[in-house]
Design a protein around this nucleic acid. Structure first.
Lengths: 228, 228
DNA sequence: CGCGCGCGTTAGTCGTAACTAATACGCACC
DNA sequence: GGTGCGTATTAGTTACGACTAACGCGCGCG
C-alpha cells in the first residue's frame, strides 16, 4: 500500500513557496533555504530529497534546488492563496496592512479551492495584494512587471511606489506605513547618496531620510501613471 | 526545557469539540468518541490520557471522559470559531448552506483571534449560524434553548424549525434543504405515526413524508414566533 | 602541502498522533 | 461460578518533520 499521492502538507508548501521567492535563476542553496525557513540544514536536505522524489524540485550541485514545472505550478498556487488572503484580510476585514502576513501565512495552507474562489469572486477578482504584489490567476499565471528599487531613483526624480516587499517583517512594514511608503504613494528623491547609502525622500509632502537598507524592497514605477 | 504550554493542536481541538457535542451528562465512552472521530479506540485512550494530564478532561470509570471547566472553555472557543466560520462562508461568501461544514472544520483550527474578531465584527456579531445553532460569545457563553425534536410535534400542530443538527452529513443537509427543512421554516405536522415512525409534514405548501430517522436532528420551536 | 572553514550530508532522536495485534477486564448469561 | 463478548488498555510500529552531533568534502591560505 504505497500512497504515491502528493501530500501537499503545510511544510511542503512552505518549501515550495520559499523556492519561488528565493529564485534568482540559480538553484537555491541549502543554507539559504534553511535561513529563510528558519530550520536546520539537515531538515532542508531531507525535505528537498522528498520533494525531488516527487518531482517537484530538481537538485543541482551541492544540494542546491530549483523548482520543476510541477513544483512551480504548486508554488504559484500557494502564492495565490497567500496574496488573495492578505487582500481579503485588509480590504474586507480591514485588518492592518502591516500585520496581516502571519495570518495569511497560516491560512494559506488550509483554504480549500472552493473557499478561495468564493473569496476571489467576493472581492471582484483583485489583481494586486495590499503590498502591491500581483496575484497569480487561477491557472497560476503571474503578471511580470519591470520595477526598479526606490534607491535607484536619481535625485530630483519622481515616481510611484508599486510594490513593497518583505511582508514578513512587521516592524519594517509598520515603519513604512508610518512614513507613507505604501503602494500607490508618490515619492520624490531629494538627495541620493549612493556612497554612504543615505537617501532623502519626499512622500506626501513629508520628508524621509533613510539608509539604503531601510528602503530595500520598495519598488517603484518611474512612469508615474495617472490611474490610481 | 519542558514546555508545559497548551499545544492546542488540531487533533486536541477535535477531541474537545467532540466531547462537547457528545455530552449527555454522563461521561463519554471511549468507543463513542472513537466512532465519532473515526479513529481507533487505542488512539482515543491515548489522547484522553494526555488531555487528562493537561486537566482539560477528567476520566471516569472505564476510560470515559468528561470536559473539565478548562476543557469546556477551550471547546466552546472551538465551537465559536466553527460556527462563526460557517456563518461567514454562507452569509458573506454565499457558499452552500449544506456544503460548508468541512471547510469550517478545517479552518476552525487555524484562524487567529484577531481574524475571528474581525469576521465577527464584519458580520455584525451574528448570534446564530446557518444551521440555526447559537454562536458562543467571545467569553464562551452559549445561549441555552428549549427546543423539541420535530418528530415530537403532534399531528395538526404548527411550529417553526429552529436548528438543524448533524451538519457533517452533507447528503442529509442537502435533502433537508431540498424539502425546505431549513432554520426559520414553518411546518405543520399532518400525520405523526410514532409506532412505525412515519411522519407527514407540510412545509411551505409542500408535503413531505419522512421516517423518524430522516427527521432526527431537526429541532423546532412550537411558540411560532413572528420575528424571522 | 596540509589545515581549517564553510557547507552539506549521514545517523540517530524526539514529539505528535495515528495504526494493529495482543492482552486484560467486567458483566450478563447459562 | 465459569464462559464469552464487548470494551478498554498495553505494546509496538509507522509517518512526518523537526532537531543535534558527528562526519566528509572542497577550497583558499599560509
Amino acid at each position: 500500500m504505497k500512497p504515491a499521492r502528493i501530500p501537499a502538507s503545510r511544510s511542503r508548501e512552505n518549501y515550495l513557496k520559499a523556492l519561488l521567492q528565493l529564485r534568482t535563476g540559480q538553484p537555491v542553496a541549502v543554507s539559504v533555504l534553511a535561513r529563510h525557513l528558519r530550520v536546520s540544514a539537515p531538515s532542508v536536505t531531507n525535505m528537498l530529497a522528498r520533494l525531488a522524489e516527487e518531482r517537484l524540485v530538481t537538485l543541482g550541485a551541492r544540494g542546491a534546488a530549483e523548482l520543476s514545472a510541477d513544483g512551480e505550478r504548486a508554488a504559484l498556487q500557494v502564492l495565490r492563496r497567500h496574496r488573495l488572503l492578505e487582500t481579503f484580510l485588509v480590504r474586507v476585514l480591514e485588518l492592518d496592512w502591516s500585520e496581516v502576513h502571519e495570518d495569511a501565512e497560516e491560512l494559506e495552507h488550509h483554504v480549500s479551492e472552493r473557499v478561495l474562489d468564493a473569496l476571489d469572486r467576493f472581492m471582484g477578482h483583485p489583481t494586486d495584494d495590499p503590498h502591491g504584489h500581483p496575484i497569480p490567476d487561477r491557472r497560476g499565471r503571474l503578471e511580470r512587471r519591470a520595477l526598479e528599487p526606490l534607491a535607484s531613483l536619481p535625485a530630483g526624480s519622481r515616481a510611484q511606489v508599486r510594490e513593497v516587499r518583505g511582508g514578513d517583517d512587521r516592524a519594517r512594514m509598520a515603519r513604512w506605513k508610518r512614513s507613507g511608503l505604501v503602494p500607490g504613494a508618490r515619492v520624490r528623491m531629494l538627495e541620493a547618496n549612493a556612497e554612504d547609502g543615505v537617501y532623502t525622500l519626499e512622500i506626501a509632502g513629508r520628508r524621509l531620510v533613510s539608509s539604503r537598507d531601510g528602503l530595500e524592497g520598495v519598488l517603484i514605477d518611474r512612469r508615474a501613471r495617472e490611474n490610481s
